[in-house]
Design a protein around this nucleic acid. Structure first.
Length: 578
DNA sequence: GCCGTTTTCGGCCCGACTGTTTTCAGTCG
């Protein structure tokens, strides 16, 4: 959907901006490139087509110089400014920039004053107590940086599930076309949908080992190591895009799929029970698993029947009560993409989104949604262009016009209101009452203690106009643990006040997490799977749906699985108002 | 580098927090 050329050059602009900010003492020149990147990303037309018509300079943030850069890139594929900087810019500085608390200015000081160009050098300098010698750094920051480096190292080997999926997809496409390969399947943590992973596990079905020779001759993977695992299965490990790839070679079908999907606790629990109940099979589970690999099951459903239980979807195979449920044949029908009927929590250009309201509406129609809930940022989110009263009025009127223009979709008008430190919402009640719905989210003052933060959320949840709680913990996967809250108290209060909890679908958030989904479901709280969309790419709920499935949710548990008619009634009745 | 009822230079989204300072720069949301 996104124009690939636009995306590529926007990415180059972003990198250029970063390099300028660090190498030069002019952050405004950097900002200019960043702004241009935003403009380009939000375009609906191909940037080079605009360039060929000489229309670039009419775009916001694109002047004479940047326009020339773009045109040249379109013709030659070379972006001069980027190439020039790339040659002199130490790549390791980008890693340092990822450490919390270190921005461009500080990284620049480290580079220019201490010659630090990588995480390793930075660590060394901290240990030698050299940071305290430069302005802006002291013993405390030196200590904090050391602990951030430790965290960085731990996190570095992991990838977001979304990235790992893309890597897996790329490799599977290539492998499938090798001679003699019948099938390649995703297994392991990624098939069970863990939020992040340190490797991609694949299962390849092929006659003979010709595929290994092809793989080696085509240099598909680096650092290849071939061995056989504890079950005697041929195992090929290597790296691709700096990510570990682990391939098992199997002739069989469902047995291997089951064993290598895991989780270990799920597989072991099932096998243990089977062994205990079978005469003469007592002993290690290894021989049993070896035998399982050689058995001829039609599919995994048949395999689970062999264990005397019903099929368990991969997402549930974590040892969280799924085996008991499968014994009773009461594994629920998990939510799927087709159950989703509409979306809430979408931003527009009026705050910090990159699509205008009308474009959002048209995109949602294209995507087959029956309703869309607009929610820009509220007034105290200055940094995100939060809506002042006059902007609110403008948007309210525009929504009315669009409702007339696009009767094929229901448009709900809402707001993502900041939950202020005292737990109050952002506007006075006379304004709050005019919205169709209100998402309350915490965006600032993240470092309150657990008790105060919990009380803050509880107060917001008790507010009659609040519809749902946005990204309840504020976590950013692999980057920031959420603020500490008493989740039980939050969910209990949400239940009492009939509030909805958001499952923020952004692959970096996935907040509330799958365990939280499960608890919410047990309490009978609706979960709304929300895109928190800022860009055209954000409108898919793929990772949110996977998280919801892992959290045992069915269509009946999900707010935005309501049909258009049913949602209309709910929005009229506003059950969250008590 | 871009932009302009603050037009060809001098600004550039606002405010809290933190660790560094001893009056503030840098980071983050």
């Amino acid at each position: 959907m996104v124009l690939e050329g636009n995306k590529r050059i926007a990415e180059l602009f972003r990198l250029t901006a970063l390099m300028i900010e660090i190498l030069e003492d002019n952050s405004f020149r950097a900002k200019a490139f960043e702004r241009a990147a935003e403009t380009i990303e939000a375009l609906e037309r191909d940037i080079c087509e605009l360039a060929s018509h000489g229309e670039l300079e009419s775009l916001p943030g694109i002047g004479k110089s940047i326009s020339q850069h773009i045109s040249r890139w379109c013709h030659t594929g070379v972006f001069l400014e980027y190439e020039k900087l790339k040659d002199i810019f130490p790549a390791g500085l980008l890693d340092i920039l990822r450490l919390p608390g270190l921005g461009p200015k500080k990284v620049r000081s480290l580079y220019t004053q201490l010659g630090i160009t990588s995480i390793g050098e930075l660590e060394y300098a901290c240990l030698e107590n050299r940071l305290v010698s430069i302005k802006g750094f002291g013993p405390k920051s030196q200590q904090r940086i050391l602990s951030e480096i430790e965290n960085f190292r731990r996190v570095q080997k992991f990838r977001y599930a979304s990235e790992a999926y893309n890597t897996a997809k790329e490799i599977i496409e290539v492998l499938k076309n090798f001679n003699g390969v019948e099938n390649v399947e995703l297994v392991g943590a990624l098939r069970r949908f863990q939020e992040y992973t340190d490797d991609v596990d694949l299962l390849i079905k092929a006659g003979g080992t010709g595929w290994i020779d092809t793989l080696i001759s085509k240099k598909l993977l680096d650092d290849i190591n071939i061995s056989s695992d504890i079950l005697g299965t041929v195992r090929l490990e290597g790296t691709f895009n700096n990510m570990s790839i682990d391939i098992r070679h199997s002739q069989g079908g469902a047995g291997a799929l089951f064993v290598y999907t895991g989780s270990r606790s799920h597989v072991e629990a099932l096998v243990d029970e089977k062994i205990k109940g079978t005469k003469g099979l007592v002993g290690s589970i290894i021989p049993f698993l070896k035998n399982l690999l050689s058995m001829n099951f039609k599919d995994e459903t048949e395999l689970y029947e062999y264990f005397g239980i019903s099929f368990v979807p991969p997402e549930l195979r974590e040892g969280f009560g799924e085996i008991e449920k499968a014994k009773n044949r009461s594994i629920p029908a998990l939510i799927g993409p087709n159950d989703i009927r509409g979306i809430f929590h979408v931003h527009t250009t009026l705050s910090d989104g990159s699509l205008e309201l009308e474009k959002v509406v048209r995109l949602c129609i294209e995507l087959g949604y029956e309703y869309v809930g607009i929610s820009d940022h509220s007034v105290s989110a200055y940094y995100a262009g939060g809506l002042t009263e006059d902007k609110l009025e403008r948007q309210r009127r525009e929504v009315e016009v669009l409702r007339e223009r696009y009767p094929q979709i229901d448009i709900y008008w809402g707001i993502e209101s900041d939950i202020r430190p005292d737990g109050s919402l952002d506007y006075p009640d006379r304004i709050l009452e005019t919205f169709d719905f209100i998402i309350g989210s915490v965006h600032s003052h993240l470092r309150m203690d657990k008790k105060a933060m919990t009380e803050r959320l509880l107060r917001a949840l008790r507010h009659p106009y609040l519809t749902m709680l946005g990204h309840p913990t504020g976590r950013l996967i692999l980057a920031r643990s959420g603020y500490e809250i008493d989740m039980d108290a939050v969910l209990e209060t949400a239940k009492s006040y009939r509030k909805i909890i958001e499952l923020n679908s952004h692959p970096y958030r996935l907040d509330i997490d799958w365990k939280g989904c499960k608890r919410a479901k047990e309490l009978g709280i609706y979960i709304s799977i929300n895109p928190d969309a800022h860009n055209i790419d954000d409108f898919s709920l793929r990772y949110g749906i996977l998280t919801a499935r892992k959290g045992w949710l069915t269509a009946a548990d999900v707010w935005n699985a309501h049909s258009r008619e049913s949602m209309r009634k709910l929005m009229m009745k506003k059950p969250w108002m008590g």
